[in-house]
Design a protein around this nucleic acid. Structure first.
Length: 563
RNA sequence: GCCCCCGUAGCUCAGUGGAUAGAGCAUAGGAUUCCUAAUCCUUGAGCGCAGGUUCGAUUCCUGCCGGGGGCACCA
């Protein structure tokens, strides 16, 4: 609808120029916006104000010329007369458009016709985008923070896809390096303890219950003689077993959170294939990597980082940074023009150095984007609930899903911008009642399903499949037109959400639509004595149902037929 | 000290270079012979402070103040 208005304005500018009403046909950057206040019309443009300098005329005068051209054109084609009820010039030079009610009715047809594709956009132009998220080390189960990253990453992937991007979702498995060795050692020490030895655990070891479970499982499978073998080999075996097992758990947790990845990428594979070494050699030959104090350093400082960073330590071990460089190079070589990483806010110091390596390799800095998800502040009954990974005292994502359910958890994680810290109160989220916004939106879907159930029982709709609206001209109530207006903006919201990489835009939209529907529902009966009107209203609410579903799908939340 | 995020209603948060800044919760009152009351209707109060850019700033820029997070040959 907004596009139609824009076209009318552009045509009128051209016409005005041809007729000598306007000195220039240049159109500066202007806005077609929906005014907050409905007394300012359905749409409003600031064209006259932003054109004052170009046209060398006062805004009021420009507006008058434009309106007169619109009217001339409208009379010629007869089209605008149908669409626009009146045009007003107001304030410092706003041109306000008031649309006729029937201008809105085709929106319902479009929704019913496009169905699951309604709201889809092609702004992505099929550009290849990779989004990598979660990527938690397989050294322990996923916790709440990972849950937020998972919900955000998955939703952004869905939204980008719906907006016409060619999206791949990937999980990077840190299955190499020190943390995995530490995991092996932790399990091994726990094994020794289980067999009766006095063990003092070093500070850097993991000590959650899951470590004990893993140790017991190994003991059960391998027997106690397992630990009498070579210490190094045994630890390595423990590490391998534990990482594999933990990763399996991570996959299961994500799966029950409704998340699947297109690709799982192993860090170890970068070493196995010699890629890491190759990248180090390559950058060394370009003198981007140099040797100092027995270590190899990357000149990240030349690219805006505050200091240079080590890629190979003086003991010969590579750092995570080394494999991360190789990994990101690999992404671009796979053909992604745009690479998005979703990280926890505590990793923000890492952005500059990865960006430096990307730029050093000749890519543009904007081809690498990081979404920093601010931390989740876990509360229980309004009081801070500290978690410490080392002590093993933390709330896992699985706990959350078990307590509040997948839908409520995902909706909660996406309810706010990830730029802000999120309070997640376990007691509050546990309540399966109206305090939880997810029910508010899902209820719309279920309510409408209920209406259709009744309509079928009463034999109103047995023969109608609603691939387009019925009797839409009967939809004239304020609440009905208002609902259609909101439905009409779904696509804009998808595009806005995709461009900003902000999934909560969809959340806010759904809450707005849900509120409008509940208000309508309480004021008007859909199923009435008047069969024709009933069909019109059924068409409308079916449109609402489809849009709610399309929105919820993007966020990874179910749209239930019944609650 | 440096870097990132935030500062909007009593609380938790949306939002916008424009004309009267929104929602939920909380508070107070009301609505169901009727498609799910997991709903709706009514009720008060707010853009941290100071400059700058602009015809116009809550929005953009700078500084300050306040809160959170990060600054290892850790990840």
């Amino acid at each position: 609808m907004k596009n139609k208005i824009q076209k009318i304005v552009l045509d009128a500018v051209q016409k005005g120029f041809e007729d000598g009403l306007l000195p220039s046909d240049h159109v500066p950057e202007m806005e077609i916006e929906e005014p907050r206040n409905s007394s300012h019309g359905d749409f409003s443009t600031n064209f006259a104000m932003v054109s004052a300098a170009i046209q060398k005329m006062p805004p009021g005068k420009i507006a008058q010329s434009l309106v007169s051209s619109i009217k001339t054109l409208g009379e010629a084609t007869g089209e605008e007369a149908n669409l626009i009820e009146k045009i007003e010039i107001a304030g410092p030079g706003f041109i306000n458009f008031f649309l006729s009610k029937k201008a809105w009715h085709p929106v319902v047809d479009r929704i019913l016709d496009q169905d699951k594709q309604y709201g889809a956009s092609d702004i992505g132009k099929n550009e290849k985008v990779q989004i990598e998220f979660v990527s938690a080390n397989p050294t322990g189960p996923l916790h709440v923070g990972h849950g937020r990253g998972a919900a955000v990453g998955d939703a952004i992937g869905n939204i980008l896809c719906f907006a016409g991007f060619n999206v791949q979702k990937e999980y990077y498995i840190n299955d190499s390096g020190r943390q995995i060795r530490t995991l092996g050692k932790s399990v091994w020490l726990k094994l020794l303890e289980e067999t009766g030895k006095e063990i003092e655990f070093p500070d850097d070891c993991y000590q959650g219950d899951y470590i004990k479970d893993l140790a017991c499982e190994i003991l059960e499978k391998e027997g106690s003689k397992f630990i009498q073998g070579d210490e190094k080999e045994t630890i390595a075996a423990c590490a391998k077993f534990a990482a594999k097992k933990i990763l399996k758990g991570i996959r299961e947790d994500l799966s029950s959170f409704g998340i699947t990845f297109d690709n799982w990428f192993s860090e170890q594979s970068l070493y196995d294939s010699g890629r890491v070494q190759k990248i180090i050699d390559e950058f060394t030959s370009k003198e981007l990597i140099y040797k100092k104090d027995g270590a190899l350093w990357f000149r990240t400082q030349d690219f805006g980082d505050e200091k240079n960073r080590v890629v190979v330590k003086n003991n010969g071990q590579t750092t995570y940074f080394a494999s991360d460089i190789a990994y990101h190079m690999e992404k671009y070589e796979r053909g992604f023009d745009r690479v998005i990483d979703v990280w926890g806010a505590d990793h923000h110091g890492y952005i500059k150095r990865i960006e430096a390596s990307v730029v050093a390799s000749g890519r543009k800095s904007k081809q690498f984007e990081v979404i920093l998800v601010q931390l989740v502040n876990l509360l229980r009954g309004g009081k801070p609930f500290q978690m410490s990974k080392r002590a093993g005292d933390f709330v896992t994502l699985k706990d959350i899903i078990d307590e509040v359910g997948k839908d409520a958890a995902r909706f909660m994680f996406l309810s706010r911008s990830y730029d802000s810290g999120l309070d997640f109160d376990l007691e509050l989220a546990k309540q399966k009642n109206s305090d939880n916004p997810v029910y508010y939106v899902q209820y719309v879907h279920a309510r409408i399903a209920g209406i259709f159930l009744k309509a079928k029982q009463e034999n109103i709709i047995q023969d109608i499949d609603f691939d387009k609206g019925e009797n839409l001209h009967l939809l004239i109530a304020v609440e009905e037109i208002n609902l259609i207006k909101i439905l009409d903006t779904f696509k804009e919201n998808v595009e806005k959400s995709a461009q900003a990489l902000h999934p909560h835009v969809i959340f806010t939209y759904l809450m707005t639509l849900a509120a409008a529907f509940h208000g309508y529902y309480n004021r008007h009966k859909v199923i009435t004595e008047d069969r024709e009107l009933t069909l019109a209203r059924l068409s409308l609410v079916l449109g609402v149902k489809k849009v709610i579903r399309n929105g919820l799908v993007l966020l990874g939340v179910n749209a239930p037929e019944r609650m």
